[in-house]
Amino acid sequence: MRVILTRPAHSNERTARKLTALGHEPLLLPLTEPVHDLDAALRALAQSRGALAVTSAEAIRVLEALGSELTRHLQRPLFAVGRSTADHAAGIGFANAFRSDGDGSELADLIDRQRALLAGLPLTYLAGWPRAEGFEARLQEHGIAVTTVEAYRMRDVNPAEEVLRRLFIEQKTDAVLLYSSYATTRLFGLLALPEFETSLRSMHLYCLSEQIAAAVPPALRPRAIVAAKPTEECLLGLIGKSAPLQF
């Protein structure tokens, strides 16, 4: 299948390799790019002593960019969403990296179960913008103190109209992978013309979560297919297994 990827370039390339290995043809369409705030991350680490939390691999890339300044913090517990993010954290030296296999809410539940690792200190959340609210909201439900620091922001990437026409109109494309509500909203804003909607009605819209599917325009929401769990493995496993679209 020919599959459009809407993640930032670094993540797109990693997912593209996975799709190629599965026999699919990835088509890259990054809609955002990260802007790191290394000073904010460094201040957050210097002004705190307890456990750390991240809900994206981008936050780990921010920490990695700190170089030797990170060394003194590598013994701190770090909680991450997803195997790949936790593995990346371990790969840059974190000795105590813990992961949830679900979304941010599940990570907050894990932290609650491992509350002893907080040692009575506030959790430091190295976050991005924009971000989903589930992680911080669930921490509040558990009564876990958290200091949120925006270590990076996502900046819009504006693809040329001819690129959009080529991907969505001029050639047959089978599916789009949607990883975030923000990128999903951006994509359909860029494609807000009847000719694009006609093409989209012939595609599968694979969504990482129900929240992301809710960002798909109502007219196209029946084309949205949601992963059973919000992991890339589950999302990629949907490709090619969906029932044919009905028109």
Rank of each mutant, 00 (worst) to 15 (best):
L74C: 14
P77K: 03
E106G: 02
R113W: 08
T85N: 05
G93C: 04
F94Q: 06
T85L: 07
D109Q: 06
E64A: 15
E69S: 09
L52C: 02
G102E: 15
R99F: 05
R49P: 08
D87Y: 10
N96R: 11
F79R: 00
F98E: 15
L52R: 02
T55H: 12
R83Y: 12
A116K: 08
L63R: 01
G93R: 01
R49I: 04
Q75E: 12
D103E: 13
T85Q: 06
G93W: 04
G120Y: 00
D109G: 11
L107W: 06
V54E: 03
G102M: 08
A86S: 09
L63G: 00
T55M: 06
A108L: 11
G102N: 06
F98P: 13
A97M: 15
G82R: 04
I60E: 02
G82T: 07
L78F: 10
G120T: 02
R83E: 13
I92D: 11
T55C: 08
E69L: 14
E64R: 14
Q75P: 06
A119V: 09
A95N: 07
A57K: 09
N96E: 13
G82V: 11
L74G: 05
V54A: 08
F94M: 14
L110Q: 14
E58I: 12
E58G: 08
P77M: 05
H73C: 05
E58Y: 05
A89W: 02
G93I: 08
I92R: 14
G120N: 03
A59C: 01
A80G: 10
P77A: 03
L118C: 14
T71L: 10
G50H: 01
L121A: 07
D101T: 12
F98V: 04
G104E: 11
T55D: 13
V81D: 02
I92T: 14
G91I: 00
L107E: 07
R61C: 10
G82W: 05
G67S: 14
G50K: 00
A89T: 03
D87C: 15
A80D: 02
E58D: 06
A119L: 07
L70A: 09
G93N: 15
H73S: 03
D101C: 01
A116G: 13
I60P: 05
S100K: 07
A95S: 09
I60Q: 01
H73L: 14
H73Y: 03
A65I: 13
L110C: 13
E64T: 14
L74H: 12
E58L: 10
E64Y: 09
Q114C: 10
A57H: 15
D101Y: 05
G93T: 03
L63T: 01
V54R: 01
